[in-house]
Amino acid sequence: MIIIYDGLIYASVLAVLCVGLTLTYKITSVPNFSHMAFAILGMYMALITSKVLGLSVYAALPLAFAASGLVSLLFYLAVIRILQKKKSSVISLIIATLAFDIFMIGVLNILADSIRNGFQVLSRDFTLRSTDIVLADGLPLVFVVSIAVLVGLALGLYYLLYRTNYGMRMRASIENETLARTLGIDTRLIFSMSWFLSGGLAGIAGVLMALWFQGDPSLAMIMLPSIFAGSIVGGFTSIYGAILGGLLVGLSEIIGTTALVDVFGYWIVQYRPIIPFIAMIATLLVLPGGLAQLVTIIRQRRLKGKNA
């Protein structure tokens, strides 16, 4: 049973992170290498809420959303927007996000040290699993919440994008920024919102992570390839691709490793981070457009079939 919890919680969290990464990539064309930092900020919001403030961890969800969202927004406004105005290359933008990642790792470690020294709370490799509410039959609440968050996110984004005026403008701005601006849409607002949303979602993902796995600033480096892998497998263009890609990579990491342990022995567990990397390379070489491209191909085949 634990493997199902492990797999689905991890996969859901990863999918939420992939959605955020894809969102800012698609809307502002920035592959954000500091995305994990927002998630870890969320983790520490969970730790503070639970161990310092003595509240339920779930109270950290809005807090983490706001905190990570704001940091992300600030980063976008203070750095990315300025660089984009100067027409910096995508590689310069990537270096800027890497730099911000390093900066945030410093901030998060200082935060971790300060929590430990100020409140005598274990702040590295910590888990809040024991504070979680257990539902009937040993079902942890975080399991239900993780899946609910992912489903809610999928439905919510669908509603936002396809059922509201704001979403329509968002889609318009994504497709053709210049045209959107000449038609009176303030794309700056939409781009800023996408960074806030992306960071906020990562914050929520971080809270959920802390409720089941171990939280530590070093996760910023460890999990980043998984998020990229999930997003690329999903095609890096579609929100639903990102959800599917994230789930796929997350599940194959956990369940794939478990399966490999049965075959090769326990030592293989340590090589788990290689799985997302293989998924990413394989996708880029075989189907660079990811699952989204696959869907397009299938659609076209079907159309051809109908015509014939």
Binding site: K86, I95, F103
Partner: peptide
């Protein structure tokens, strides 16, 4: 970490 990340961003800008 703060210094290196910060300097890099400032230089880029």
């Amino acid at each position: 970490y703060l210094a290196l990340g910060g300097v890099m961003i400032l230089v880029l800008i």
